[in-house]
Design a binder for these strands. Structure first.
Lengths: 114, 114
DNA sequence: TTCATATTTCAATGAATATTGAAATGACAA
DNA sequence: TTGTCATTTCAATATTCATTGAAATATGAA
């Protein structure tokens, strides 16, 4: 992952609503969820949401596919993991660091259903 | 780590020069390096650099201490790791995900000395 | 004190960003 | 076809951001 892509991904995540959107999609897993469901869950105007989806998509953090009239958005896990890798890459120049972040298969936050 | 802090940290990193600065400090390790050395290494105007240091510091990603006339900046590894944790938290809602990012004690990028 | 070095503060400028409202597109049903 | 739902596009606005230049502050040396 090259630096411009890293900056783009970070910028995409560095916004309140987008961070929520992305986390929601991360929880939802590879199958993703329709734009409308995200809008409902996070109480966002549909055009605003489109704007944010666009930024996430441009940053490679999200993919879309159409299903009927719905657009299904899904997190792009590879990009996220590359991003994490870039940030920790070459950490401490060789010295032992703090424990690494991990992709925890965890408890649900029960917000997806809405 | 609360969401506003996560957003602040991501925003702090989501900028070309700051990402370079942070990575340089990550490589430099907990001892940090003087502002002037960072300025030289990255070819940044000192006032511009102060601006960026400020943002990194406000985001909790960096600490400062004075040493003579130099200000020594150092990466705050705990914040970075909390950040990574937040992003991957609850990943895939329970399903197995991609391999986690790790804090790799790695090869030097040979830029610190400048 | 005076001088030089290291870094910060301040003010101004141009560029990028998030949100809104209204209108448009695409897909499906009657 | 018409109507409706889901989402996107467009234009306008207010805010935030990065960079610059000049001046200020703080430390240490002569």
């Amino acid at each position: 992952m090259k630096k411009p892509d890293v900056v783009a991904a970070l910028a995409a995540l560095a916004q309140d609503n987008r961070l929520d959107v992305f986390r929601l999609l991360v929880e939802a897993g590879p199958e993703g969820m329709p734009a409308g469901a995200v809008a409902t869950a996070l109480d966002l105007a549909p055009n605003t949401l489109t704007f944010h989806f666009d930024r996430l998509r441009t940053a490679g953090l999200v993919t879309v596919r159409r299903d009927g009239r719905s657009m299904i958005y899904a997190a792009q896990f590879e990009t996220m993991n590359s991003l994490l890798g870039y940030l920790t890459d070459n950490c401490c120049g060789g010295a032992p660091c703090l424990p690494a972040a991990e992709c925890k298969p965890a408890r649900k936050r029960s917000r997806i259903s809405a």
